[in-house]
Design a protein around this nucleic acid. Structure first.
Lengths: 397, 397
DNA sequence: CGGTTTTGTTGCCTAGAAAAACATATCAGT
DNA sequence: ACTGATATGTTTTTCTAGGCAACAAAACCG
């Protein structure tokens, strides 16, 4: 049985309408403020159909018609469609020493953003309680025209897709914590949960460096290790249980050191931010200066200390092994590097390009583009919001 | 722009009809001979709609209504729908010392199969000429009621999706050969081309060990190396250019030997059939006995020579590294092993299972099933036929 | 043999997209 | 400013395809 994910089958007419509403809302959400005429061209649907679909979305409070196309072209101007600024997603992101919470509207504006520091890594219970309290306060400040849609919860760890169970988040010390359910119970809002790098991959492929690229690999280097997210056909690769994308645990060194995952020589153990900070003489507190300092050290004309050059070259070599393997497996159009991996690449792009030439087959890397991530510090807010909006975007009615 | 593969968008009624025809034909093709009532349940469509869809498919000559459900249940019997035995795909498969050609009907029956030996590896030109001559003869033998749909060409090498160019087929000595175009010109038939392991993955996931499994990895060990195919959401992973799935070129040994791909320590160089044949005292001509001999050597109660035991254990160890990496990346539901990799696994399944436990994270391998391939020697005929039928199944009208 | 159950068959209904005709708003050229 | 060309919104009509309900048919059961 070619049961596609178990949910195959008969299209009926309802699904046509639902699909078209979803397509239009998605285009509006992703493209900022297109005109009705643009939507007509882009979807291939009839003018009158687009008019009806937009009218229904306006009725649902999901979009507004605001102003007219200012393109100075002949012909009657077409109204601009904007996603509602009143439907909001709540982004929640527990970190090692803080919890980030933000409100993001369907039109992409970040309405509020708070950073609640904690003395130590919060337990799941503490994270949920702090988030719930903060959410309650943030929503209380808004007038009644704003409506929360859902919560997007982004966790630095492995998250099961079916129920949002955090299987393991080594750096927070969590294991088998039903955080999504706990947060749902504490707030009464639906919670959509995912791994942080997966959320980052969604964000970069929808709004960032990978905009419009349907086959890409996103790899992020953070304080707590290396995480990956893979986009195929424009959708995040989730795998059987939602744990896909763990590129940080690719073997890159047979003689490597033990990894917390139980294996050894993983990319995550061989390439770490800590080594870079030490080589640059920076403390953990200075981590946010890493990019500037590293790029300055490798600026044209600068003399790079040999120990630093060696470290960077070695780390890029290991990175190239993991990316080469992944390129042979996925044949991606683009690789997007975030966090300190982006800094590493920025320092010596030629080194990585050349090493990948060695480790990936000529055919699978043909046309491959490597880029640094484009979204900066907002990436996880945006990714979390996309998680929260996904159901609404898929079925607006 | 969330342009999904560039072909997004508006569903209109035509697409609903096309999709439903495709769904029904696909279910009939994949499930042998279902009843109309079963199709109704499976698709969720209305009885009358299924009746109309089936009638149209009958009209198109793609299915026949033949006999009635013999299930001895209450109620009016439902007619059985069979795929046509007259619409045929032509499977072509160049090998090191032969060219295999087969005719496979839409109902799955293999109508003809010929094995044309060659003195040496054929050039692309030779392969095309032999195949074209053989196809002409095979089709000439059939009466006019048979209609060829297309040719499915399966090549042991990297095949570009857009135009079927064989980028490289190291063991045939081909590079940048437009074989699909050549075969199209020689026969006048459409040619759909793919890598052999990719075709194997399609076959095993549609009709073999992975039937109904929508997230699986297929890995095949042959005389000419190790090839892989990855199925995600029920569809073959193709990547940006169609080269995805090259699991044979995953790094498994940092101190490994050079690979023809330009890298070193690849799975394909560290694990080869040749080593196994030598350890078992078999010649290349005896390769087909490998499975029997190896399994006999490891049969319960047998004493395994230590050199052989070590080799098998080492090879399974390397295999586990590649599969562990892939498991962390894809979080598959199943891994299917074909060719000598299936034999290796059959000899000592516990060794591989244990090694994968070590190399894949607990979450990503949760619920993972490892199986030997089920389709045997017909796998590439079936895979090639699926390639040829894919367009028809996607758009029957 | 009549009752029950399941499914095929037929005719009607409705949702929704396309198409066509008309209206409107802009630009370009005089 | 006026006129024509162009693009797009608006309204009405048409058509397609799937759902639904009523009826017919073919099996099993007691």
């Amino acid at each position: 049985m070619r049961s596609i994910g178990g949910v195959l089958n008969g299209n009926n007419l309802d699904q046509v309408r639902r699909g078209n509403l979803s397509t239009v809302l998605g285009l509006v959400h992703t493209n900022g403020a297109p005109s009705r005429a643009w939507l007509t061209r882009e979807t291939g649907l009839n003018r009158s159909t687009i008019a009806a679909l937009v009218a229904e979305l306006v009725q649902l409070g999901l979009v507004v018609e605001a102003g007219w196309d200012q393109t100075n072209q002949v012909g009657r101007p077409s109204p601009i469609i904007r996603a509602s600024g009143k439907r909001i997603a709540i982004a929640v992101r527990p970190e090692l020493d803080a919890i980030d919470i933000g409100l993001v509207a369907l039109d992409g504006t970040v309405i509020r953003r708070v950073h609640r520091e904690t003395e130590r890594a919060p337990t799941a219970r503490e994270a949920v309680d702090i988030a719930a309290a903060e959410i309650s306060e943030l929503l209380g400040d808004l007038d009644a025209s704003y409506r929360p849609v859902a919560i997007g919860l982004v966790v630095p760890g492995l998250v099961r897709e079916s129920d949002g169970l955090v299987s393991i988040a080594p750096h927070l010390g969590w294991s088998d914590e039903p955080v999504a359910v706990m947060l749902q119970e504490a707030t009464g809002l639906d919670v959509y949960s995912a791994n942080d790098a997966n959320a980052g991959a969604i964000a970069e492929s929808t709004f960032g460096a990978g905009r419009g690229v349907s086959e890409l690999i996103y790899l992020n280097g953070g304080a707590s290790g290396i995480g990956g997210g893979i986009v195929i056909g424009g959708d995040l690769l989730r795998g059987a249980n939602g744990f896909a994308g763990e590129l940080g645990h690719t073997l890159v060194n047979s003689a490597g050191i033990a990894c917390h995952c139980g294996s050894s020589g993983c990319l995550e153990t061989e390439v770490s931010r800590q080594q870079l900070l030490e080589a640059l003489g920076l403390s953990i507190g200075d981590a946010e200066r890493l990019d500037d300092v590293l790029l300055a050290a490798f600026a044209p004309g600068a003399t790079v200390p040999s120990a630093l050059a060696e470290l960077v070259e070695r780390q890029l070599g290991f990175l190239a092994i993991a990316l080469g393997n992944a390129t042979n497996l996925f044949n991606p159009r683009m690789i997007v590097l975030g966090g300190f991996l982006g800094s590493l690449y920025g320092a010596a792009p030629g080194v990585l390009d050349e090493a990948i030439r060695h480790h990936a087959m000529a055919a699978t890397r043909d046309g491959l583009v490597i880029q640094r991530a484009a979204l900066g510090s907002n990436i996880l807010m945006i990714g979390a919001a996309e998680l929260a909006f996904a159901d609404l975007l898929g079925n607006p009615a």
